[in-house]
Each structure stands twice: as structure tokens, then as C-alpha cells.
């Protein structure tokens, strides 16, 4: 709400209508309603993470969410803005950050991560609606740089079906190759099943493909996210890994594995669709999602890190203004010309 007011004020000061960052359109949807709906869509996957990873996951989620809201209130107080932490945006940022962390991280990681997400990535750029980068992913990226060991120490599952290893499938793929991954799950069919239901090592909220996709479909049904973004991003990853991911020539990779492993599902449905940091038009969204998918595959197959969803979305965030300029809606084009 406050972002919309600030935007019009800025336009008034400029005296003209400028091509500016989203949000543009006013509708009956309010920011609190959208934010809390996204939180509800994420909850099943979070609860699933808490169940399979145990008490550490509960602690991490609570620390992230509470510290994010505390930092939000503090910054709003310092900036002399109305303290509206119940609009859910800080809660959502904290929750998304927690979902991208290993379950048993030391207590200071969630707090520092929330600080970087809320204070550095969000409010230093101007607050809600003005941030260039996805705050939760900035927090995660800073934590990976700062404490690489803690951020790659994965929690073994407390409730384990047939897997004992705590290593992530993508980590095993990077270090030991595809056959070792299949072996870890005990067969290809079991691997797909475990990946789909979420019985694998990884960050606490990214494991269950089923619950995340259900949450995403709920948001698409509500009209809060555009289906082209997840479909394009996941499709791009599938096609590119199928073409280049194999060890015996072209088109020998395993697209299903790559589409379900790592943080791709949560990234494609909940991060790449962020209203503030992704393009406005449909064409722009397709370019954005394609770029995210392509960079993810580049990092996974060629880069040094096992997983690239976080960096790919951050990199594409930085070119979002350019994509928006490239794909202007007709009325804007006429006005500029």
C-alpha cells in the first residue's frame, strides 16, 4: 500500500508519467491479501520439511520469520514510516529464506540472513516495491559466501524411507556422477518417487516437489502468479539438461531428475514469479524465465556449484529493467515515441 502511495508521489514530483518499476496496476487485491495467500501456499512444504528434518527445521523457520519481522519493524521505525509488519511481506521473505537454508544451521545464520534480506536487499533499495533483487535470495547468497561449510552441511532425514545419506542429489551428481545418484536412491524408479514426494537431503523447504507444485497451482488459480514463468523455467531446464546433461553425447541426459532436484521447483514457482523483481509483460516473463532456466543449467552442468537456481534468479533480476524496456506495452511505447 505504502509503495503505491510513494510511487504516485514520485510521479507527481517528476511532473510526468515515467516508465517505472512495478507494481503498476491497481486492483482490488491488496498487498496483505496476496502476501498471506502466498504464505498459505508455502505452508504445506514448510511443514513437510519440519516433519522430515525435525526440530532444527522448526528453529530455523522461527528464527528467520521472527528476525525478519523484527528487522522490518526496526527499519520502518528508523525510516519514519508506518509500521505495517502485519502486511506479511517480511513474514514471507523470512519464510522463503528459511526454505532455502539447510535445516540445522547455527542460530546466527537465519538472523544474519534476515538482516541482509530485509535491511540490505529490501530497504536500502527503497523498501517494498523498489528492491531490485529478490530479498530472500540475496540473504541466501550472502550466507553461502560467508559460511560455506555451514550452508552445505545437510541434515539427515529423521523420517527416512530408504535413503540414509544426507547428501543432496545434486551434490552427489557434481562430485560422483549420475550413477552414484541412482545408486544412492536404490534404483531409478525409486529416485523419481523420492524426489517427487520429497524424501531426500536438501534445504528444508525445497524437497517436496508434490507440495510445492500444489501450492504453485493454487497461486496460479488465484491469479497471483503467471503460469508461463514456472513452465518456461522448468521446461528450459528440462530441455537443456536432456540435451547437454548426459555423458554419452547429445540428448542422453536425465531431464526428470534435473527438473525435480535442488531448488528449481520452489525457485520457479515462488521466486522467479516475485511481482517486484520480475518483468511485467508476458513476453518479458518468458524471456526472464528462459534466462533463469538457462543459467541454472549452466551452473549445474559446468559451474563450480552443484545448484544454480539462486544465482540464476539473482542474475536475471538485475536485467529485469532491461527486459521491461524491451517488452513495453503498446501504450507506453506510444508515449515514449
Amino acid at each position: 500500500m505504502s509503495a503505491d502511495n510513494a510511487l504516485t508521489l514520485e510521479q507527481k514530483q517528476a511532473g510526468i508519467f515515467t516508465v517505472s518499476a512495478s507494481p503498476h496496476m491497481l486492483s482490488n487485491e491488496s498487498i496483505p491479501k496476496i502476501m498471506w495467500t502466498v504464505v498459505i501456499a508455502l505452508l504445506p512444504a514448510v511443514i513437510f520439511g519440519m516433519v522430515i528434518f525435525g526440530g532444527g527445521a522448526v528453529q530455523t523457520v522461527l528464527l528467520c520469520v521472527i528476525s525478519a519481522m523484527v528487522f522490518e519493524a526496526m527499519v520502518l521505525k528508523i525510516r519514519k514510516r508506518r509500521i505495517c509488519i502485519n502486511d506479511g511481506s517480511a513474514f514471507l521473505t523470512g519464510l522463503l529464506l528459511a526454505m532455502c537454508l539447510p535445516a540445522d544451521v547455527p542460530f546466527y545464520l537465519p538472523i544474519v540472513g534476515s538482516f541482509i534480506a530485509i535491511v540490505v536487499a529490501k530497504h536500502s533499495m527503497g523498501g517494498l516495491g523498489y528492491n531490485i533483487f529478490n530479498p530472500a535470495h540475496v540473504g541466501r547468497a550472502a550466507l553461502v559466501l560467508s559460511w560455506p561449510v555451514a550452508m552445505t552441511t545437510w541434515t539427515p532425514m529423521t523420517y527416512s524411507v530408504d535413503t540414509v545419506s544426507s547428501a543432496t542429489p545434486l551434490g552427489v551428481l557434481k562430485l560422483q556422477g549420475y550413477d552414484a545418484v541412482v545408486q544412492m536412491f536404490g534404483g531409478q524408479a525409486d529416485m523419481y518417487k523420492d524426489l517427487f514426494f520429497g524424501f531426500r537431503g536438501g534445504c528444508l523447504g525445497e524437497t517436496s516437489v508434490l507440495l510445492l507444485v500444489l501450492g504453485g497451482i493454487f497461486l496460479i488459480y488465484k491469479g497471483y502468479i503467471d503460469w508461463v514463468v514456472p513452465v518456461t523455467m522448468i521446461g528450459t531446464v528440462g530441455v537443456l539438461t536432456w540435451a547437454f546433461g548426459g555423458s554419452v553425447g547429445l540428448f542422453s541426459g536425465d531431464p526428470l531428475f534435473h527438473m525435480m532436484a535442488g531448488g528449481l521447483i520452489i525457485g520457479a514457482f515462488f521466486m522467479a514469479t516475485d511481482m517486484v523483481t520480475s518483468p511485467i509483460t508476458k513476453k518479458g516473463k518468458i524471456i526472464f524465465a528462459f534466462g533463469c532456466g538457462a543459467i541454472t543449467v549452466l551452473i549445474r552442468l559446468i559451474g563450480g556449484y552443484p545448484e544454480g537456481v539462486c544465482y540464476s534468479i539473482l542474475l536475471m533480476n538485475s536485467v529485469t529493467p532491461l527486459i521491461d524496456r524491451l517488452c513495453k506495452v503498446p501504450s507506453q511505447k506510444r508515449r515514449v515515441a
Partner: peptide, 19 residues
């Protein structure tokens, strides 16, 4: 104290100088 490696990496340097 667990050192925050980002501060001795270029990324942390740029963020600090920005502030």
C-alpha cells in the same frame, strides 16, 4: 566467533563501501 567470509570477499567490500 565464526568469521563472515563475505566481508573479505569483493562482494562484501562493495556493499560496505556503498553504505
Amino acid at each position: 566467533y565464526p568469521p563472515a567470509l563475505i566481508m573479505i570477499l569483493p562482494a562484501g567490500g562493495f556493499i560496505l563501501i556503498g553504505y
